[in-house]
Amino acid sequence: MGKINAIITGIGGYVPDYILTNEELSRMVDTSDEWITTRVGIKERRILTEEGLGTSYMARKAAKQLIQKTGVDPDTIDALIVTTTTPDYKFPSTASIVVGKLGLKNAFAFDFEAACCGFLYTLDVAASMIQSGRYKKIIVIGADKMSSLVDYTDRATCVLFGDGAGAVLVEATEEQNIGVQDSYLRTDGSGLPFLHMKAGGSVCPPSHFTVDHRLHFLYQEGRTVFRYAVTYMSNDVMEIMKRNNLSAENIDWVIPHEANRRIIEAVAKRAELPLDKVLINIDHYGNTSAATIPLAIWDNESRLKKGDNIIFTAFGAGFVHGASFYKWAYDGDKVAGAK
């Protein structure tokens, strides 16, 4: 038996029907379409507005589409991992809810939390599980209902975020020139003061005080986060390029975390990569946290060819950051249902 490698064999996605436009936001807070578009590059975002529905609903929708597109037997799924910052509940895990709704009988499930780096980190974890030889098929889902954390009176943050989910099937292969090739993942550890939610955890449990003082919303110091994001993402991309003898000429695609168009442009410029090789969909989804990278794959599946050299990169609260080198495993334009 040859060396086992891990490949993505399919992608599913889901975004809510409701579209929150910049024009509508301008009626809620002191902002405008020009202000938002110029600073972050977002025109609209999808919001899950139905009462009683959370992250597991979107994750299940994305996974169900993935199973239908790939034709995989649900009973052959060994594990399902949901990476999210917005779980349905503190417990049980969102992944356990998704497994139950999908009726997967032979899969164990758990949540993984690494903020906006969630998908990047979890894909590496799933690949390692596959490469161990103990697991053959794992579903990885990046999903976040960021609207549940957003203060829609704060124009600095409410314009940034949307809701959505993306799911990939990760499988074992003995073919060596495709799949996960290398990862460079790091955690700074200094990011707490600049990006967090002040209350709701064990340090500051929910109380009348925390609710009255609006402490259950996302807090961000935008300029500091911007600076760290550009520095780390570009450095991580360049490190992966150096370690794998990659250049602008032999990289086919860069798929970044979609936090802010200006961040993406700055990262491409610092890494000396042409912007036309960078997949960007922040204009119509906003920042969906752990869902951004899989949603970008979902949006562009038909453009991806077997053997394409792809770099994933992300940055998030913590500060967590990293990049990975992946060789695409199939021709996306031959998949029924590819967008």
Rank of each mutant, 00 (worst) to 15 (best):
V40C: 14
A127T: 02
I97A: 07
K105Y: 01
G13S: 12
L80T: 01
C117H: 10
I36P: 11
L80M: 03
K61D: 07
F110L: 09
A59F: 05
L66T: 00
T55H: 07
A109C: 05
C117F: 05
S32T: 03
Y135I: 03
T122F: 06
K64T: 11
F112V: 03
F108D: 00
D111R: 14
V29E: 12
K101Q: 10
D124I: 02
T49P: 00
T83M: 14
G10F: 05
G103R: 00
R60Q: 15
G52T: 09
R45Q: 10
D30P: 12
R45H: 07
M58L: 13
L120R: 14
G103H: 00
V40N: 09
S128Y: 04
D30E: 14
G118P: 06
S132K: 13
T86Q: 12
A62S: 08
Y135G: 07
Y135A: 09
Q68N: 14
S132A: 11
K64Y: 04
T85G: 15
I11K: 09
C116P: 05
R39Y: 10
S128N: 14
D111S: 05
D73C: 02
V29A: 14
I11T: 13
I97G: 02
M129V: 01
S96W: 06
I77F: 01
E113S: 15
V82S: 11
R39L: 07
S32N: 04
S56H: 10
Y18H: 08
T122K: 13
M28I: 13
R60I: 09
A127S: 14
P16Y: 04
Y135R: 14
V99T: 06
T83K: 15
T86R: 13
I67W: 10
S128M: 07
D30G: 11
D88V: 01
P92G: 10
I36D: 03
C116H: 08
T86V: 05
M28N: 09
T76R: 06
G54N: 11
T70E: 03
R39A: 06
V15D: 04
K136A: 05
I97P: 03
Y89I: 00
G13E: 02
G118V: 01
P16Q: 08
